[in-house]
Write a protein that binds this DNA or RNA. Sequence first.
RNA 1: GUCUCAGUAGCUCAGUUGGAUAGAGCAACAGCCUUCUAAGCUGUGGGUCGGGGGUUCGAAUCCCUCCUGAGACGCCA
Length: 572
Amino acid sequence: MIQTEKQAIAEVAAPLVGLAADEVAALIEYPPNPELGDLALPCFRFAKVLRKAPPAIAADLADQLAATGRFESVQATGGYVNVRVARGRVARTLISALSAHPETVFSRQSSAGDTVAIDYSAPNIAKPFGVGHLRSTVIGHALANLFRADGATVLGVNHLGDWGTQFGKVIAAYLRWGDEETVRRDPVKELFHLYVRFHAEAKDNPELDDEGRAWFKRLEDGDPEATRLWQWFIDESLKVFQAMYDRLGVSFEFTLGESFYNDKMDAVVDELRSRGLLTESDGALVVDLSEWNMPPCIILKSDGATIYPTRDLAAALYRHDVLGANRLFYVVGGEQTLHFQQVFKVLELMGRDWAANCRHVAFGMMKYNGERMSTRRGKVVYLEDVLDRAVADTRQIIEAKNPDLPDKDWVAEQVGIGAVVFNDLKNYRMHDVDFRYEDVLNFDGETGPYVQYTHARACSVLRRAASEFPSDLTTDLAPAEGPLLDSEWALVTEMGKANEVFERALAQFDPSLMARLVLDVCHAFNRFYHDAPILAAPDAQTRAFRLGLTDATRRFIAYTLGLLGLRAPEAM
RNA sequence: GUCUCAGUAGCUCAGUUGGAUAGAGCAACAGCCUUCUAAGCUGUGGGUCGGGGGUUCGAAUCCCUCCUGAGACGCCA
């Protein structure tokens, strides 16, 4: 909506400054002070080409823009052209668009025709689902939603850690110290305890490691006992993970663990060999990448076994060739940056031009009390505990503030989990985060509950309106006579940024931009709510307009929360 | 040691890809519920944008350099 105005300005200005309209539109910004105007075009950049001082250019452009009659006012101040748009018209356009098709306000379907495979979550079998897995899960899910909303066919892939020496260790530990009944009661936790114990005891007992390796070898060779236990671990783990995904509202198109590629790696090795990309080095077969300043990518270990780059190559080929993806994203921690650079480079060397469409969406590390979490040492924060605490706290707040609320448990679940999810989504991906309960369990300020609360608040007004002024909800949304209030316009402005922020979020693979935007919208709405009586507006026309704005805001928030993977209860 | 990423208010972070007086939230303090949900709103205090150079009309943003932190750097994933 704001774009339409930017475009209109750019089309007038473009021929005068010798740039394409799109280029000029990209330069238009929001003035720091609303009194200056709604949009501003800085003219400094044009000075050199036009051989004129910026203020003079601004003055010329201002005249031209004023002559169109489209804008409420146009002023040159210094090197800027400040434009005040026809606020009523812009507001009306935005409100009706949001009430008819909210998605059109965000997306121009730029990803239509793309099939994107997004690798996210990827927890390890027989290990707990910790807060450390939250980031990949939540960011990946939000990105999947964003690309789907932009018209792409999205294939969410859960690349489970279901293979490797660790399973030999778990099997060995289970056979030594475990018993079936205890494990059945709480499989993942119990297996995890056995795993931690294994590592602790292996320190003084190195032969334990041999035992683990031996069991993994048996698993690889298809030993029935090893295979049975391994499959059991997987089944039990998946049950636990699924319960977590259900609570988080996360889903996948494919759940394909590492083991899925066991029979697909020979082909990769053969192709690399026949293309002459493999060289021998200390007994291992590697792809030399020194030309690109990278260490070699190991394909076969010196014992002839494959290794994770081999597996990721096989997985990438599968996702492209079989699943039909033309873009491949990996939502995986930043510590694996080099690994993905190597894998993508090898794909390129294998002649796969779509390697350029592979992207590692890295994120910072989650720490606890400033320390790195370690599954081996048993240092993990269970996501389940975090969710439970958040929900319990929410439940208490509801009891204190809104004891008559129906469905209190369900609302507490949505809000408590929303708090945890939003907390992880609102900040720049690459920053390390130190997990602290006091942050996650804070429901004031820039938080999920704040956004959900604002949504519920808007819903509440609309519910009242439906019973008290039903006709006002159906009339057309002609704005009241006279100018919009500052708070009304500020709200329209924030929501009007939907498309540009949405597209930046896609371009940068960064859902936090959407989280920030919805926070700004909520703040603007709450200020409007405080400043302007809605139901008690001075006249019916004003009331209808404000109700329209409230309804549009409600839809905006609900839609954005949906993109981020949060639910939007109508009361809380 | 080499490479990558980060460093902005006491704390957690934004900062529209180089634009106007660097902004939020938390914490602290002071106000605002006879009126639409106070999980809210308003105000006050709080800054060497890690340091130093440079590029230009203009730098938190781009370049160089140094400092600090995190991560990665061949047979784990």
